[in-house]
Design a protein around this nucleic acid. Structure first.
Lengths: 198, 198
DNA sequence: GTCTATACGTGGATAGAC
DNA sequence: GTCTATCCACGTATAGAC
């Protein structure tokens, strides 16, 4: 305690302030366009401190997007309830994450992946091995179709992110999450368990 | 290997060479990351010539993405055949464009839109006013739903672009177009004419 | 028309003072 | 720990020589 009067004790948590500013900057502008100087200004610290705490820009980036959620523990609950309505549940879970502060990390990764090969690779591998594979692996479908089904789900969810957060096309950009769940859930459901040949 | 080729009339078409290199660079890296120097090198000309022919970088960009296709004359054929199978036809037309050299211009616009506000706005307005509006305006649905249906179509198609060309998730990245038409067409069809409440 | 040279700005990174 | 000062690379853009 004893913190109340007198001097500012320097800074309570410079590191956290930098991290928060970095997350916002990367999410808003992507890896290349976000600058350490801007991040430092936003965090009200000196640019040199950013290097002091995090090393290079790339290390800072990895710290900001260090996956704050673990699909391995999140997905089972979504999938366990069985194939019925799994599409809706996936979209709902997805939107809950992306509408939360945690989503900014994902947005940073996505924005960076578009213009930067190594972040694109980071994102692709995370999606394929950590998310898509888990989603389709216990499905009662032809195993040869699983990769395609996973990719199709990714395509719809990636497009949702793009239209809601990046290009911002109304009314998707401003829609209530549940509204989107009922509109898009069936699409995901079909990609997972439906007939893809017609 | 010497670069002879006999005839060397200075340069047959410097302007076109620059434009082609610029399109490729913008498509691959986006507006901010693509540099005039790189473009000039790729076109085997001096950087100063780029300015000489096109003025600023922004003007060069606009020249490269000057929409080479006109939805106003392309869409009627797709829509005229009636609501049945319009989803498949849309996806097919879409993929034909994006798999062609013309698609590079679109990719340049998309990649740039992600990290650059004014190109995002350019893309959004083109999509909403030139494409989506036309697609939904003659649909036999509740007019209040048209914007949502258009946005949903955009979400699926944007996601298709992202997974096929940007993040490159297999097998979508390498799939035969017709394969994707049968898989994704029904989704677009439902967004356009189906029941969105369940 | 084409290239050289350069002005001017931005951004990552580091050394060293306090 | 925090900041000042600085180095260096790169990018846009322009002026002017050939």
């Amino acid at each position: 305690m004893a913190r109340r009067t007198g001097r500012r004790p320097g800074r309570p948590d410079t590191r956290a302030a930098i991290l928060a500013a970095a997350r916002a900057a990367f999410a808003e502008r992507g890896f290349d366009a976000a600058s350490i100087r801007t991040i430092a200004t936003a965090a009200a610290v000196d640019p040199a401190l950013v290097h002091h705490y995090f090393g290079t820009k790339e290390e800072l980036f990895r710290a900001t997007v260090a996956i704050p959620i673990d699909p391995a523990e999140l997905l089972p609950a979504v999938l366990a309830a069985g194939p019925d309505g799994v599409g809706e549940r996936l979209v709902r879970t997805f939107l809950t994450i992306w509408d939360s502060p945690v989503g900014t990390a994902g947005l940073a990764l996505l924005r960076s992946a578009v213009n930067n090969e190594w972040t694109a690779r980071l994102l692709r591998e995370f999606l394929v091995t950590q998310v898509l594979r888990r989603v389709v692996e216990h499905l009662d479908v032809d195993p040869a179709e699983r990769a395609l089904r996973g990719a199709l789900v990714a395509s719809q969810l990636a497009g949702l992110i793009m239209t809601r957060y990046v290009i911002r096309i109304d009314p998707i950009a401003t829609a209530d999450p549940e509204h989107l769940v009922t509109a898009i859930g069936p699409t995901v459901q079909r990609y997972l368990t439906g007939d893809l040949t017609g």
